[in-house]
């Protein structure tokens, strides 16, 4: 059985989620030890347990050690089945992370899937829904399957209560894609969303973004959001190139001025534009697993994060593929996966 040290590299929930996803696809059981060993609250937390349970449901898996605080887990998957699933995530925990866990298996399942995920949709420490919808899923679609995500209502921390749906039309197998260049920027859009908060927060944020990025008014959109349980504010900056779309997100916080929220997002967007690499750090994390499952693929990115290198190591435990991460120049790296 594959045994994974849960404390190496990034050392958090990412290792677990990647391992669960790969185990489902390959049918290989695994044991993970020292789960989140170095963290303040070590072992499995609620959100990890939700991911384990969702994976077990999708893969008809046998699970041992799935308890709060557990430092060790054994996961033995059965046959993956697509279908209708609904998962609710507590503590306004990120529903997108649960999707990230089960999606690889559903992309090549025999049946199509219809998923409903409830909980947090816009969390500071997880891919926000807009990133998933605009940046990640279009690339997945280029690999063969058809995946469509719709936001029913946003869920912000701490109230949660968000919901989105995902329809997956699987492909027999994933095909390779390569993302060498961003290509020409075709579309730029900055959105400022406010839920149950005054609209002027959004307009102040957009003023900063427009001025600092030197974007015209038609690229700026203030959106009051209906249907959210609690208050929430985010800014979403979308940069759509020919080959790839990047989404940068800034999170509004009580006590932090709207201008500062916008500033942080602008800084990240500028870095992305300046680096010239088509794939940003967050997208790089997400792309590794589907590319490895496709048996090959490549992209250029900025300096890889610990998440990315950790993911690459886990992939090597489940799949017979090589992940090469090479520095090209001072700001760009090339990631290439080959079988």
């Amino acid at each position: 059985m594959i045994t994974i040290d849960g404390s190496f590299g990034e050392g958090g929930g990412q290792i677990l989620r990647t391992a669960l996803g790969l185990s489902l696809v390959t049918g290989k059981p695994f044991r993970i030890e020292k789960i989140r060993a170095g963290r303040k609250k070590p072992g499995l937390l609620r959100q990890h347990l939700t991911a384990v349970n969702a994976a077990a449901e999708v893969g008809r898996a046998g699970v041992r050690g799935a308890a709060l605080g557990s430092g060790e887990l054994v996961f033995e998957p059965g046959q993956v089945a697509g279908g209708r699933y609904r998962w609710a995530i507590g503590t306004a925990g990120s529903a997108t992370l649960v999707l990230q866990t089960v999606l690889p298996a559903l992309l090549t399942a025999r049946e199509p899937s219809s998923l409903k995920l409830e909980g947090g949709t816009h969390n500071p420490f997880a891919p926000p829904f807009d990133f998933l919808q605009k940046a990640f899923l279009p690339l997945v679609c280029r690999m063969g399957p058809k995946v469509e995500a719709t936001l029913v209502r946003p869920g912000f921390y701490p109230a949660g209560g968000g919901c989105f749906k995902v329809e997956v039309a699987p492909a027999e197998r994933l095909s390779r894609i390569d993302i060498p260049e961003r290509g020409e920027v075709r579309r730029r859009l900055a959105r400022a969303l406010v839920a149950n908060l005054p609209l002027h927060i959004a307009t102040r944020e957009l003023t900063v973004i427009g001025r600092k990025l030197n974007w015209p008014d038609e690229c700026l959109r203030a959106e009051p959001v209906e249907g959210s349980q609690g208050p929430g504010n985010i800014v979403v900056i979308e940069i759509e190139g020919e080959g790839v779309t990047e989404v940068v997100t800034g999170f509004g916080e009580k006590g932090v001025p709207a201008e500062s929220v916008a500033d942080a997002a602008v800084r990240e967007a500028r870095e992305y534009i300046a680096a010239g690499a088509p794939v940003g750090a967050h997208l790089a994390d997400q792309l590794l697993v589907p590319m490895a499952l496709a048996g090959g693929g490549s992209f250029r990115t900025a300096a890889p994060t610990r998440h990315t290198t950790t993911n690459a190591k886990i992939i090597g435990r489940f799949l017979d593929v090589a992940v090469r991460i090479e520095r090209e120049d001072s700001a760009t790296w090339k990631v290439a996966i080959s079988s």
Binding site: K41, L45, R46, Q47, L49, L68, G69, G90, T91, A92, G93, P158, A159, N196, Q229, G230, P231, K254
Partner: peptide, 21 residues
């Protein structure tokens, strides 16, 4: 109202911990 999410309400908060279900 929505402001309630900005304050600590013990009966709700106790169900928001990551390490307690």
């Amino acid at each position: 109202g929505h402001r309630r999410w900005e304050k600590w309400r013990p009966s709700v908060s106790l169900c928001q911990h990551e390490d307690l279900i």
